[in-house]
Write a protein that binds this DNA or RNA. Structure first.
Length: 363
DNA sequence: CCAAGAAA
DNA sequence: TTTCTTGGG
């Protein structure tokens, strides 16, 4: 478990430092994924938009009634870009979190409440930069925001799947079944749930501001392949789950004392499994049910009750939601919709009918 | 984060 | 054309 340097919020299991370069491919041009179905972690995406799309003082985008709209702006424009690149997106949304996560949810709630206080203080003292950081940290995704997002996707003709529990688990399941090419999230959790492929940084404009400094770094999308990862490290998926648990997951956020990426890999390889590691080597401030956590990663709650189908976008409904209900600019939305409808016809509807994109239209 | 207009 | 800055809601 770690605190993300960018938005200051917890991000699940941190496998960053144990993923070998051989298992990662930088995606220089998103069109490399042309024609591929990608299952996007909806909560992860919405949360990022909510945290990032803000004014310098931390104020999010809002409609005339004061309702937050940052998540809708991000979802709308990014989905258009993804479809323009020829990718077929499906979103998956979290359901009821598993009982194992209860502690972590409480912890996050406390962190957000603390951040909300500090945000007020920073606003009082006039420290804009600090205010923005705390605003990002205290960002909360409400049920209404998720409902709005789902309605927008419906209007855009983009399918979404309601997971019974963890969205990352459902995404992994869909990819494993072969109903999608890869999962997409900033978190690594779907790998522990067995997703064969994970895309991170699924964006077009790849400039990201560095936390403290006034600098930007180029962030390109990357593909992580589970089989290559396991072969390169010489471990099994169960071993990888063990490593995740040693480092800390949503179900044991603190991990174990004094164990980082290197030691975790070494211990798991030396003993063959987390349950075989001598207890004295695993020091933790709280009791951790390693067996239950491991079992959850191996057999999470998922469902077959989903349909991945794209429907013709309804520009009028999109406008009703964005312009009429949430005060988006009609000009911007119309321009974007024109791009979208065109890209949708070329990249999604065309291929769905089984026609080669080279022969399906004149010129 | 993304779009759009300005600046380079 | 590409890169940077600002505003979006």
């Amino acid at each position: 478990m770690y605190i993300d340097q960018h938005n200051g919020v917890d991000m699940g299991v941190d496998l960053k430092d144990i993923i070998p370069g051989e298992a990662k491919t930088v995606i220089e041009d998103l069109r490399i994924l042309h024609g591929k179905i990608i299952v996007i972690d909806g909560y992860n995406a919405l949360y990022q938009f909510l945290a990032a799309i803000r004014q310098p003082d931390g104020t999010p985008l809002m409609d005339n009634s004061g309702r937050i709209t940052s998540h809708l702006s991000g979802l709308f424009y990014r989905t258009i870009n993804i479809v323009e690149a020829g990718i077929k997106p499906v979103y998956v949304f979290d359901g009821k979190p598993p009982e194992l996560k209860a502690r972590e949810i409480e912890r996050r709630k406390a962190v957000k409440e603390e951040a909300a206080k500090k945000y007020e203080e920073a606003v009082q003292s006039g420290d804009l930069e600090l205010a923005r950081r705390y605003a990002m940290m205290s960002a909360k995704l409400t049920e209404e925001m998720v409902r709005d997002a789902k309605s927008l996707l419906d209007a855009m003709g983009i399918p979404w799947v309601q997971a019974p529990a963890e969205g990352e688990a459902q995404a992994a399941y869909i990819v494993k079944k072969g109903d999608a090419y890869a999962s997409a999230s900033q978190d690594y959790d779907s790998l522990l749930f067995g997703s064969p492929k994970l895309v991170r940084n699924l964006t077009i404009s790849g400039r990201r501001k560095l936390p403290r400094k006034n600098e930007y770094v180029e962030v390109k999308p990357e593909l992580i392949e589970l089989d290559k990862l396991l072969v390169q490290l010489g471990i099994t998926l169960e071993n990888l789950i063990d490593i995740g648990i040693l480092l800390g997951t949503d179900y044991n956020p603190d991990g174990f004392e004094g164990i980082g990426p290197k030691k975790a890999l070494q211990l798991v390889k030396a003993y063959g499994g987390i349950e075989k590691i001598p207890k004295p080597l695993l020091k933790s401030p709280v009791e951790v049910d390693v067996v239950a956590i491991k079992k959850y990663f191996l057999q999470p709650q998922v469902t077959d009750n989903y349909r991945i189908e794209w429907h013709t976008p309804d520009p009028d409904v999109v406008k009703r939601i964005l312009v009429d209900e949430h005060d988006f600019s009609i000009d911007r939305v119309s321009t974007a919709l024109e791009r979208y409808v065109k890209a949708f016809k070329e990249n999604i509807r065309g291929e769905q009918k089984g026609l080669s994109k080279w022969f399906s239209r004149p010129k």
